[in-house]
Design a protein around this nucleic acid. Sequence first.
RNA 1: GACCCCGUCGUCUAGCCUGGUCUAGGACAUCAGGUUUUCAUCCUGAAAACACGGGUUCAAAUCCCGUCGGGGUCGCCA
Length: 542
Amino acid sequence: MKTQVATIRQMTVKSVVTRFAPSPTGALHIGVRTALFNWAYARQHQGQFIVRLEDTDQARSSIESARRIIAELRWLEVDWDQGPRCVENWRDALAKDFDPMADQVGNCGPYCQSQRLQIYEQYLDQLLTSGHAYHDDGAIRFRMDQDVKFDDTVYGHIEVKAKELEDFVIRKADGFPTYHLAVVVDDALMAVTHVIRGQEHLTNTTKHVALQDALGFDRPTFVHTPSVLNADGSKMSKRDKAKVARKALKEHCPEEEELMAWAITESAIVPQELLAFYRKKNDSADIAQILAHPQWLDLMLPEIDVADFRHSGYLSQTLVNYMVLLGWNPGGDIERFDREFLIERFSLDRINKSNAKFDRKKLLAFNQESIAGLEHDDFKDRLRVFKDQELSDDLREQFGSIFSDDQRLTLFAQAYHRRASTLKDPFELGSFLTVDGPPLEYDQKAVEKVLNHKKGQGYGVLEEIHKVLKEVGDDQWNAEELESLLKNVSDDLQLSMRFVAQPLRVAISGSTVSPPIGITLEIVGREIALRCIEVCQHLQPG
RNA sequence: GACCCCGUCGUCUAGCCUGGUCUAGGACAUCAGGUUUUCAUCCUGAAAACACGGGUUCAAAUCCCGUCGGGGUCGCCA
């Protein structure tokens, strides 16, 4: 009996099919949030999740961009059932021999619209014949002469009067369908049941519904999600990088003449393009990226693309967690969770209506918490991977010696585990550990405060420390032992520990900030530590 | 401008549908203390919101209307 009911259900209830349909015209940015929603929903219902490339814009679509999008989805550990092959490792998607437009899986393909032109023709004919569409100046337009009503799961009932609607192009003069026609046809042919997408499509949905009705397609369930905005309320987009870069550029070259002179001497960007960028003629993220390079303006560009966050040392798990929280939450004060929880608890009726601002500080706090929660070994492994895959050549080189010595690496990871908000932090905070000698420079304020202060008391302490450390054998040179020896020094001198640790810290790191002094000494090593102290003594005035 | 949508602490939000339990809860950020050899962590505490105005009701953050504010669409971009 039970099986019978199950069978009937299977026959009558359509299984869930969702899709993420990016256009391969750039990097994958915050828009992935809807991919996450679609993915989670399909997984929750044991349905199908499709990735489809909407490359109807011939001028802007590119295979590189498609590869990058797929790579980032995989980095986020999103997988799919139909579409370009779901590569095992995100880096595989970047391989030059991977062609997302050709290497595809599924029975409803092809999964990129440039290869579905004949399919659209068929429906175009149907609309022309039935009088729903007409030729107009080389293009084909769809007639919008009916009131449109539809229901959205998040925004409720939407109704627009025919007089507010205008006929719209469904086939461009170049023979390609527009997005509107392609989405409708593809969603129908791919049996998509739930269309979860950004709110910017809410008004467009009137067009889609009209097309579906004219074509005799079933309407999918529409689920529009609120937008994600910047802190200033503007829509979060790739333009933001250009904004930051342009601002810096204008400060660097207030006049266009200077700009041109500068551009010619630096010459990494075509001067004309740079000028266009300067004049706000374009918002090229690529130009912004070049300008941000240390050789040029050395800027910190805001993270916008998924790749940017990966590059900055965010954990993909954390990014997923945070992004999904923008517009959805599981209720009950829960806000930290993993992918499994998301799949289990995601629900359409808890998606919010109002737009959300992207709060980088909160993301950072989440990331720090995630990192702190990692097992030591896991953190160490991730640092290694991060170093190999994300660091610049210079930095990778710089940290080479620490990473080639597993024992030192363990200490390094241990020293920075609770001090890291991102996987990149240890490489910035700990750069003094890589100089293999005395600090390249000393923070003057630090020198004043902890060494010169009180008639150079700090130098005296350093002398004591040097005496003690000189006697320590290499076999005893470990954090615990060193801490206790320093404690003895502080007792002997009747000074609190800070008056002992701080001068030493300045001698070793050049600043007042470092991991606990014991582990810092251990990582630096006996020989170099002693040399740091000796060199530092020479800073004493007079 | 027209049309569509939205409006709870600075930010993300819980609560709203099914009015009373909300002197509105949590998180991030902020501020003040405490722990600590610096930094970070950690602990304690504080300040901080129902956009405004009208209704409906014994009772409104919750229902209705208006105003204002924000976002979106109005492309042979998606």
